[in-house]
Nucleic acid binder design. Structure first.
Lengths: 141, 141
DNA sequence: CTACAGGTTGAAGTGAACTTTAAGTCAAGT
DNA sequence: ACTTGACTTAAAGTTCACTTCAACCTGTAG
């Protein structure tokens, strides 16, 4: 029988706040632990579970997505079995985000080097470019 | 005298909702326009201003940052004069974000290919790696 | 016995960027 | 006169991931 942890000890060891742990439990991300005199007592394995949750959060999953990561699979399936479907979508999103970042850097560089006489002209040029790129794609006949 | 636009027309032409335009005005991002019978009447130049605002938003500036972009400089200075200070910081942020994205993709790929027997082992390995990379950097003596 | 550290709860608050709602005004068309 | 559509306002609601609050309970130390 592993030594049970109080919520405060789990918080210390995981780096989370106790309030976050309670919140995760309330929203179904964590199972309800045993109680001693009304207080939560956690199996140390909770720390592994929280690590997986942190991993998911750091990968940009919402808590809702993380819940699916836990719920939609048989009890102890490893990440290699859980991840494929959801991770593929996430990677597409990440690639899109990376592309956007590159585009933003380009736009910032351009704007910094603009030759406009005043701010209104900057606005006009931005509008012109927006109209160009959304209106007709490359070759109007 | 340019033809004044109602808020609805500005909304149509800018792609924003009227509520957003009112919100921007309330929070000081847009000047208070003239009124006719209580209704806002905009100089079409507002569209250029909104374009600059959209540009700033798309570059990842918060509305607060955008406000500074407008306020901290003499009336009509072009972006080339407004941008340098704030854009440099933003580019650093963007580079950091791009690096994080790359790191996330790597972590996702790793996790998809993990050899763990069960989810708890995944958690253990994540914890081990986290401890490794934060605890001692590269070479403990 | 009392103080105290830590735990418990539900409800409300946070911040960003808006949207929605309710109730009202106004000018033009029929 | 009446209806319609677009506008006006302040206030409250939305989403996400929590935190903070107020009021309470419990085991241990002195």
């Amino acid at each position: 029988m592993p030594v049970p942890l109080t919520i405060g000890e789990v918080a210390r060891q995981s780096g989370l706040r106790a309030s976050a742990i309670r919140f995760y439990e309330k929203t179904g991300l964590l199972p309800k632990p045993a109680r001693a005199a009304g207080q939560r007592r956690y199996d140390p394995a909770i720390l592994d579970r929280l690590a997986v949750l942190e991993f998911a959060k750091q990968c940009g999953f919402t808590l809702d997505e993380a819940r699916h990561l836990f719920e939609d699979f048989p009890g102890d399936a490893p990440l290699s079995q859980r991840l494929p479907g959801i991770a593929a979508k996430k990677i597409v999103q990440l690639d899109a985000l990376a592309a956007r970042i590159a585009a933003i850097k380009e736009r910032l560089a351009r704007a910094q080097a603009c030759q406009c006489a005043d701010l209104q002209e900057c606005g006009r040029q931005i509008r012109r470019r927006a109209a160009d790129s959304s209106g007709s794609k490359s070759a109007p006949r």
